[in-house]
């Protein structure tokens, strides 16, 4: 495996800056993720996981500190450059799927490639491959409303893989699914990690799922309070 794909140094995130009720949500967080790692981030509700995730995903800029994504400083980029980085380096998977409602599953998977400027034929060829990969080959023309939750999330994972990103970022991807379906989605992440060598960062409330990953980072009140390797043993740590 290669070098550091995520390198965060003294990252700070404040809200309502300059007002009396300024909030300090992320307080001096530093950590690195190596290429090909499967990392989970856990912590109680409101601890700042999603806020951190938004910065990892280049949706948001940190208030302070430095963030190198794949060696590039993205902490002070322009909006357009941030869009392009998200498009090529990040694959998002959301708790609520966030498929485009009036587009077919296949069109949803094509979307990141459309924004990358790929031509129509190549786009649909790759989208079909990805749909096969997530075992949704027979549902390509269905609208999201015609799919089950697990099926939607598989389409979303196919979409996240579209531009062959450096990182898959998943914020509670099993949060809206029952445990059996969640299991199936989790297996898909393992497969993507194992077979494609993708770096996966997973936010979850589920300690058991976190324990399956290479590494568990625990956040409390905007700080990293523990950073341990995964395995059932580690999960019992608390």
């Amino acid at each position: 495996m290669g070098g550091n794909i995520i390198e965060m140094k003294h990252i700070v995130k404040n809200f309502y800056i300059g007002t009396p009720n300024e909030l300090h949500i992320i307080k001096d967080v530093s950590f690195t993720v190596r290429e090909g790692d499967f990392v989970s981030i856990v912590g109680v509700s409101g601890s700042g996981k999603s806020t951190l995730m938004n910065m990892i995903g280049v949706l948001d800029r940190p208030t302070g500190g430095e963030y190198l994504l794949d060696g590039i400083d993205v902490s002070r980029m322009s909006e357009n450059d941030m869009s392009d980085v998200r498009n090529r380096k990040i694959g998002f998977v959301f708790q609520t799927f966030n498929l485009i409602p009036r587009s077919s599953a296949l069109k949803n998977v094509e979307l990141p490639m459309l924004y990358a400027g790929m031509d129509g034929r190549a786009r649909s060829r790759r989208a079909k491959e990805l749909m096969e990969l997530v075992e949704m080959g027979d549902r390509m023309d269905h609208l999201p409303s015609e799919l089950s939750g697990g099926q939607k999330q598989r389409v979303a994972i196919a979409r996240a893989l579209a531009n062959d990103p450096a990182i898959i970022l998943a914020d509670e991807p099993t949060g809206a699914l029952d445990s059996a379906t969640g299991r199936m989605v989790m297996d898909l992440f393992h497969r993507v990690h194992r077979e494609d060598g993708k770096t996966v960062v997973l936010i979850t409330h589920n300690r058991e799922l976190a324990a399956e990953t290479d590494r568990i980072i625990t956040i409390r009140d905007g700080r990293i309070v523990s950073d341990q390797p995964g395995a059932p043993r580690a999960a019992e740590g608390r």
């Binding site: 357009n80 869009s83 392009d84 998200r86 498009n87 998002f92 966030n98 485009i100 979307l111 531009n163």
Partner: peptide, 16 residues
Amino acid sequence: TREIGTRKALGARSSY
């Protein structure tokens, strides 16, 4: 709104 947010997360520039 959510759709727009999703599109932006997937890399759509504002101009698009």
